[in-house]
Design a protein around this nucleic acid. Structure first.
Lengths: 147, 147
DNA sequence: ATTAAATCGCCAATGACTTGCATTTGCACA
DNA sequence: TGTGCAAATGCAAGTCATTGGCGATTTAAT
């Protein structure tokens, strides 16, 4: 049989390497979770993931545990956007830095705006020294179109 | 009997006026909740409140309901500090402006630091103009003692 | 192929609220 | 100074997201 090089298989191999490099085994459930997150273009909640993956036979507790494992391993970023729901995002190591860019969430329409990382940087440096190292910034309020 | 003017009694009367002005009855449970929040120097979760007030005979459902009522009435501010627990703060109308002071939450120990309202004010004004009106600021990271 | 440890799947338990309902209480008005 | 009634309370049960226990299964190193 000839060797296949479909984009999917390349991704699978890369993800498996990534998992092993992080000290995690490559299991079907784990791969399903990380592949789904990699394909997503915005952070997904556990329930969104579960809704898709449970019909495929994966257990929701397993999905939870994998999200936790992947987060601990640094392959996935977990964030809370103020609505009591954890959201998970595949972490693109090429673009990851000391802190994530600030998010602005509109209380009314729920829209999320990603701000420039430099926006509050100067003030945050002062806080870093005095209170602790800030890794995550969340601003909430009313966006211009909802005001 | 001579009129008393202990600070406590003054506070109680002021809070009762405040409740009535907001269209809420002054009940013992409600007063207990708002007094405790007024005395606190950082936001309190329902469970923290319940831990203190249940031994005094107040029901936790009542505490929840009162926190919701007080929040709806605008006497208390509810915020989500990134750990999936609502926290409540007495709203000081003398100092309340367009936005509340920023909070810093330590990811490791959970400690909450209330920052000075002026801390990020300058930068936030710019954001107000460009993206929307920021009402709530949340910073998360590792505090100096956990680093 | 063997095997120890990681992971899985099922299911029970926790924790943070929420809701239903019968009883009590604050307070507006008589 | 009562009295009525909506608001508020206490108790209990329910919901929903998340976590923990545990025996069975699977991964990956030898």
């Amino acid at each position: 049989m000839a060797k296949k090089h479909s984009p999917d298989q390349v991704d699978v191999a890369a993800l498996q390497t990534m998992l092993r490099g992080a000290g995690l085994r490559s299991t079907t459930a784990r791969m399903a979770v990380i592949q789904r997150l990699q394909a997503a273009n915005s952070p997904m909640s556990h329930s969104e993931l579960a809704e898709e993956l449970m019909p495929l036979g994966f257990d929701k507790a397993t999905i939870f545990r994998n999200l936790a494992d992947l987060t601990n391993a640094g392959l996935v970023v977990r964030s809370e956007l103020g609505d009591h729901v954890w959201r998970f995002e595949f972490r693109d190591h090429a673009h990851s830095e000391i802190r994530q860019h600030p998010h602005f969430v509109c209380i009314d329409c729920g829209n999320i705006t990603c701000l420039d990382q430099a926006t509050l940087e100067k003030q945050l440096k002062t806080i870093d020294d005095q209170i602790g190292h800030v890794t995550e910034v969340l601003l909430r309020g009313h966006c211009t179109s909802c005001q």
